[in-house]
Design a protein around this nucleic acid. Structure first.
Lengths: 219, 219
DNA sequence: AATAATATTTAAGCGCGCTTAAATTTAAAT
DNA sequence: ATTTAAATTTAAGCGCGCTTAAATATTATT
């Protein structure tokens, strides 16, 4: 991988904060595939320039400047993902990778046009909200990892983590996609492996996968 | 401007060779807005890696490796330009700038899909041929700069140089676009300023502009 | 409370693509 | 042929984002 920019750091930090309270340097390093030392370096710069605040072992926080910058980048990323999926027709599991490259090379005007062509969508193909031009973020129902569902419960897939292409490919092939409904048949005590029913087929899902799928309960 | 890559150098060299026999380091420097010394540096690398051959004051030549690489980049660039114009709807004078950024961030698969969506066009919106996936380049009729046309002659605009956004904007506003027909009413001896007729209106065009417009004679 | 494991920072260094200023080469003009 | 102008290269240096290895700080374990 070539050069990682400030934008990548901010995106990863922002996405990290979407899921968990605390985002540590090592998490960032892992997502960007770089060394911890590199993250320390960049955090110093981002701190100096008031993008983030940071205390060792207490996690990274986005300051106003960093948050609004990150939202712009996430907006670009998710609009590209949606466009690549709906208009260009790239496969569901490939759009994240491609958008990651394009997001750094697009003017605001281009992004706005893509958004218009798409009809101002609220969510991207992986179920994540697309920030609006003014920074507003579409609201989503409360959701939780599929891993926490119990036997007998039914739910609907709201979003999935797109950290890993292989995971996405697996989900795609198993039809574990946004909006689909599923039911937990069995939850194995020891390793939290789930047996679920989706689309009239049964599927066995490890905890490593199910924790990346976020669902809403169905009343 | 941030970092210029090998790809930019190769694209500029290739495009330079489309128009003139000799491409010098200083021409490259000017087009990329960097110093001559930077070009010297990069030429050393490109020569060492067998992309180009080069003799001072005799111009830069593309070797096989460099030529095929350059063709790929030009292909990406021109497909993006066409897509941005026809599908996204960005203005004619803005697509070059935008494509210059996107061309470095696109997989071959993405480019191939865009090309398919466009219906495998032979030429981009500025009239330049789009190399095919296999490297083949659509043939064009012989053309020459509008500046060389004489009073009374009629011609058709085949392509325009897209080096400069302001130039393109001017051409756009004057309807000096691809395929349009024009007639030279008068050619002023001293400075080669042209008076032309296009679309029933008369236009006065300096030599600095007319040398960037390439036309075909109409029989 | 002492020790082990983990997270983070520091230090030194590297490759890249750029810069400016000075030196050199080639081409053009007289 | 000599001078002048223009193009090119060399030299020194810089900022960036990365690396690895070693040092240090925090948290977890016993």
């Amino acid at each position: 991988m070539s050069n990682i920019s400030k934008e990548d750091y901010l995106r990863v930090i922002y996405k990290g904060l979407e899921d968990s309270e605390i985002v540590s340097p090592s998490m960032v390093a892992e997502h960007l595939n770089i060394s911890n030392a590199a993250v320390t370096d960049m955090l110093r710069k981002l701190t100096k320039e008031k993008y983030v605040s940071y205390e060792p072992y207490r996690g990274i926080q986005l300051l106003q400047k960093g948050r609004s910058e990150a939202i712009k980048i996430v907006r670009r990323h998710r609009i590209w993902e949606t466009f690549l999926f709906k208009v260009v027709g790239l496969p569901w599991y490939q759009i994240d990778e491609e958008a990651e490259n394009l997001e750094h090379s697009s003017s605001d005007e281009l992004i706005d046009r893509l958004e218009m062509i798409l009809g101002y969508p609220d969510f991207d193909p992986h179920g994540h909200p697309i920030p609006k031009r003014n920074g507003k973020i579409p609201k989503q129902n409360k959701s939780f990892p599929l891993a926490k569902l119990n036997a007998g419960e039914t739910a609907c897939i709201q979003k999935v983590n797109d950290y890993n292409k292989e995971l996405l490919k697996y989900l795609y092939e198993s039809k574990l996609m946004i909006g689909n409904r599923l039911k937990v048949i069995e939850k194995r005590k020891f390793d939290d492996t789930l047996v679920i029913q989706i689309d009239k087929k049964q599927l066995i899902i490890s905890e490593k996968i199910s924790k990346n799928i976020f669902v809403e309960k169905i009343k």
